[in-house]
């Protein structure tokens, strides 16, 4: 029986590859948008503007304090209320961007505030503008602190893409769900799903470990 199901599974393997491709798309588009947004938010979070700091703080707390699956539902169900019709795929990307950028914001803000005030002051005193101070003096130093947890966060984001299966995006986890109805070997099906996730996240885990070791010195 096992062998029979296994050959059935192999027959529909292309279906898994399609799911994998969807997961990879969501993951990498999200890594990109979350990084850009997260740096942007993180920079303002560690900046001078009191209101912006407070506002971003509230945003981050809200995102960190609610389950991602609930956030996905809220976005998927609230937008139509406001007259915005989003397909599952863009809704998933939006939810990922909101969630991921909040976590990356905290990592970036932490990295920036780890740099002594004197570095800002020295750079400012020599006439560099605020943006130049940040770009030329602060961020290059802060990256050492930011990079290891950032890559760790990437691994988490890749795994969190599985949550968007709840709104019907045909990514890896959803493919697993759909398959298990036809091939009732749950362990076999979800082992395959797990292996495929691992294939994309493992290189990043290695990178994260490497950075951790390199930045430690």
């Amino acid at each position: 029986m096992m062998a029979f199901y296994f050959s059935r599974l192999m027959e529909i393997f292309p279906f898994f590859l399609k799911g994998l491709w969807m997961t990879v798309q969501i993951a990498f588009i999200s890594l990109f948008t979350c990084t850009v947004l997260g740096f942007f938010l993180g920079i303002f979070r560690s900046g001078q503007n009191r209101f912006l700091k407070w506002f971003i703080g509230v945003y981050v707390s809200f995102v960190r304090g609610t389950p991602f699956v609930v956030q996905v539902f809220i976005i998927f169900f609230i937008l139509p209320e406001w007259g915005i019709q989003l397909e599952a795929f863009p809704a998933a990307l939006l939810a990922m961007a909101i969630m991921g950028s909040a976590f990356i914001c905290e990592i970036v803000a932490g990295g920036i505030s780890s740099i002594p005030k004197g570095q800002w002051e020295a750079a400012a005193s020599s006439g560099l503008t605020m943006t130049q101070q940040l770009r030329l003096v602060i961020l290059p130093q802060a990256m050492k602190v930011i990079l290891p947890p950032l890559v760790g966060q990437y691994v988490l984001l890749i795994k969190d893409t599985s949550v968007v299966s709840v709104i019907g995006v045909m990514e890896l986890t959803r493919v697993g769900w759909v398959t298990v109805v036809r091939i009732p070997e749950g362990l076999m099906v979800f082992s395959l799903v797990g292996i495929l996730y691992f294939v994309i996240s493992y290189p990043l885990i290695l990178l994260s470990n490497y950075l951790e070791r390199r930045m430690a010195v």
């Binding site: 002594p116 004197g118 570095q119 002051e121 020295a122 750079a123 005193s125 020599s126 003096v137 130093q141």
Partner: peptide
């Protein structure tokens, strides 16, 4: 401006 703690990059 020269600082007590140098603040070189």
């Amino acid at each position: 401006f020269v600082f007590q703690q140098f603040h070189l990059y």
